[in-house]
Amino acid sequence: MAGFVLNICGAPYTSQAPLSALRFARAALAAGHQIQRVFFYQDGVLLANALTCPPQDETHLTREWQQLAANHQLELLVCVAAALRRGILDQKEAARHGLAHHNLAEGFTLAGLGQLVDGMSSTDRLMTFSG
């Protein structure tokens, strides 16, 4: 059994990264491996946008990640600096920046890059999904 850290850097829909990572995570979990941490960085943070509304006959990537995380108690960590730049904010950040709205999807948590580095130091299996 191996423990993986996933680093998802590509945006949903305009890149394959979040979908490939989702399929990888499912396959790894089904084979009895562990996903120690899921980190969203660069354009990958856009997956945490609660306002994403793809057409009904397309995969809702944010929802599918939420379901996988709920079923397997995975932590979905979103780089706060990358998220703020791209307009993904939780309630606390919205208040801090004097904005009326926030849009971080449920199940996702804003976190520092230290969480990615800490995850990397605890595994030999870092998988990056680039855009």
């Binding site: 660069q42 230290g114 580095v117």
Partner: peptide, 19 residues
Amino acid sequence: GLRGREGLDVALVSSTFDQ
């Protein structure tokens, strides 16, 4: 684009964490 800056950010944090 942001690739360079965001790559440097990771490197800096990693070094700060004694990696």
